[in-house]
């Protein structure tokens, strides 16, 4: 699927990991812009490592082109313009307020000595807080929030970053049913270019346009959701009768 002329993210022979341990092995694929792509696989299969590698957060061999630009060569602010990431393991070492945390999503737009938030920036931040339903807790300290509330704060920060590609690592973690349904509906409707690690196979098949099946750091199968839904590759990826489970 080499389609450098098309907007999207192209991986060629990408290998990455932690130190000497290689987790992702020689992966080549093309993730199209404007579609939702889900990464599925067992625990420890390399889903998160693949996501972090594509986001440019891990050293890697091979090439990752984001809309034709090599990610290694892009300054970090440019990368943030292209890709935002909701990580699975978020932690804050100091006690910021919810509002301050969401505002940080606008970091890539900031210049100069002090804050340079324009009126439209502040309006946009408020909109993002509304989308994540956290406007009523905007003055609270993030260290005092529940896991679900904190997840929504980081989602609002991600919205505030307003990047072209949205990367989500288990975005529904800690979210109750109401917010989970709301987020999935919003992702579907927004048609944002989304790359998402998911544990819930049903939800992924329901939401995504494309599915990447990962096992032991390698791609088992990658394709349109309609093709993957009935593929025996699902069984191989999870070492169980997934097709039977889904039916």
């Amino acid at each position: 699927m080499s389609e450098t002329s098309k907007k999207g993210i192209e991986l060629s022979n990408v290998t990455s990991g932690y130190g000497k341990k290689k987790v992702i092995k020689n992966v080549s694929l093309f993730i199209p812009s404007g579609e939702i792509t889900a990464i599925l696989g067992e625990n420890g299969s390399g889903k998160t490592t693949l996501l972090r590698t594509i986001a440019g957060l891990l050293d890697h061999e091979g090439s990752i082109l984001v809309d034709g630009e090599e990610i290694k060569k892009m300054p970090y602010k440019e990368r943030a313009k292209k890709i935002s990431l909701l990580s699975q393991m978020n932690s804050a070492y100091f006690s910021f307020s919810v509002y301050e945390t969401v505002k940080m999503g606008r970091y890539r737009f900031q210049k100069g000595f002090f804050d340079s938030y324009k009126e439209e920036d502040l309006k946009f931040i408020e909109e993002c807080m509304k989308r994540a339903d956290i406007l009523d807790i905007k003055d609270e300290i993030i260290g005092e929030l529940s896991g679900g509330q904190l997840q929504r704060v980081y989602l609002a920060q991600l919205f505030a970053q307003d990047s072209e590609y949205v990367f989500l690592d288990e975005p529904t973690n800690h979210l109750d049913l109401k917010y989970r349904v709301k987020l999935e509906k919003e992702l579907k409707e927004s048609r944002a270019s989304t790359l998402c690690v998911y544990h819930d196979i049903r939800a992924a098949l329901d939401m995504a346009d494309n599915i990447i099946l990962v096992k032991n750091g390698e791609i088992v199968k990658y394709g349109k959701t309609a093709d993957i839904r009935e593929s025996e590759a699902l069984n191989r990826t999870f070492d169980m009768d997934v097709l039977g489970y889904l039916s």
Partner: peptide, 25 residues
């Protein structure tokens, strides 16, 4: 330090989070 206050804020959330926000950590 005042010039770096935004980066210091971002780094309070961890290296990876700060990098994702656009900081060359």
């Amino acid at each position: 330090m005042l010039r770096a206050h935004r980066e210091l804020d971002a780094l309070s959330f961890g290296d990876e989070h700060a990098r994702a926000l656009g900081v060359d950590t």
